[in-house]
Design a binder for these strands. Sequence first.
RNA 1: UCCCCGAUAGCUCAAUGGUAGAGCGAGCGGCUGUUAACCGCUAGGUUGCUGGUUCGAGUCCAGCUCGGGGAGCCA
Length: 466
Amino acid sequence: MAWLKVSDAFGAPVGTKVTVKGWVRTRRDSKADGGLSFVAVHDGSCFEPIQVVARADLPNYAAEIAKLNTGCSVEVEGELVESQGKGQSVEIAADAVRVVGWVDDPDSYPVQNKRHTFEFLREVAHLRTRTNTFGAVARVRHRLAMGVHRFFDERGFYWVHTPIVTASDAEGAGQMFRVSTLDSVNPPRTPEGQADFDKDFFGREAHLTVSGQLNVETYCCSLSRVYTFGPTFRAENSNTARHLAEFWMIEPEIAFADLADNAQLAEEMLKFLIDDLLTARPDDMAFFDLRIEKGLIDALKHVLETPFRRLPYTEAIEVLKSSGKKFEFPVEWGKDLQSEHERYLTEEKFKQPLIITDYPKDIKAFYMRLNDDGKTVAAMDVLVPRIGEIIGGSQREERLDVLDSRLEEMGLEKEDYWWYRDLRRYGTVPHAGFGLGFERLIQFCTGMQNIRDVIPFPRAPRQCEF
RNA sequence: UCCCCGAUAGCUCAAUGGUAGAGCGAGCGGCUGUUAACCGCUAGGUUGCUGGUUCGAGUCCAGCUCGGGGAGCCA
């Protein structure tokens, strides 16, 4: 008797003898036909649980089966049969139901057969994966991750494992977490009284990475098409539904490429991932469409069918100024776009993903390539409805003299970037890349409103329980 | 970090400064090839924490913690 995943049991021919193992989602009893119980069992292999029909003549019926609660783990042997009831095509007529694990106190078991708020479920993150929503999120997250690797592999990209720990403290993307083995209460001191990082594990200050970009550029300048996909850490005190202290980021980097190539790659990638997800997980996506975000599937299909609109920053400013909308923050060339501006452009004005390009150099990072106008850099942000910025990227400055003057302008030390500058000294090439926030992608694809609900164990300020 | 709102049963929420309640869930029973099942009964509380005002605080005040919405930082 084959032990099948629930998803495989659904696809097996009627009459097959099967074993399934999983957790009870609900139990309903009936006195008809001498008594029977309907036990819905899920094992994570698909959205729908399978219905097990356990009759009262089973030896452990009264003592065990009739006492099953939501959350109990069971092994079921039986025959796959056509269902007599509505709501499912097949079910398992049980020959045996073995209880593997009971629920200790059903009254206080957090994941009861009722609606729960996501805020509550976040407090029981170790159990929330048993719910419809979080099971679906987990499967979608997996599919999107595999889709990322497949997309790049099919196009000749290499996955580069850039370091998690970095000594570069000037990557320019915000506050970093320190990595240290020094005694945090009484560290060794320099003569000046500062903590002496020469005595630290790495012999210098070290932090968790905020981006693999600078490292992956080195591989780009030899392997041509590369990407990173790994955890990233920001110690910003951000308390929003779209920021985490630990999140996953995908950073492709392509050689002999400019900003237009970069934008095209970003668009192709997002469309590939959405298409693949809709094809591979129709069950979970139907759930998100029905219960989480009405119209989600149509909106994603619309994204697939519509070319992303390219919009230079300077034009975006003009569109905003002539919109007639009252914004809380003034629209002015040279200032960064505010959330309300981005939302107006992508949700109201154009109602589609936008790629804003060529931002003023003063609001962007040192490594972005200076345009011929001397005022803007070859940067791009991809904005999508509901989420806002999902991708940020740029063509990189490949000219050493321009890079150096940018470093100087921004008060950065050339010596700190010695190996990054070497890439421009030895066989430099135009190249470009971007960063895609993986959790924001999952939010976009599922309609989940809070980023803390699309990562298994969210890390945020004052939140590190699990 | 800033602005606004909130924290009461396992969960979602009620309760003029004066005896702490409902729905869902849970337990028991009834009914039914059930499926957001339905009907009846029962149990379930240090009202987030600390302090203050008051004869009396879930309710008013202060601080703290946590959560939500918005903003900034960004992906």
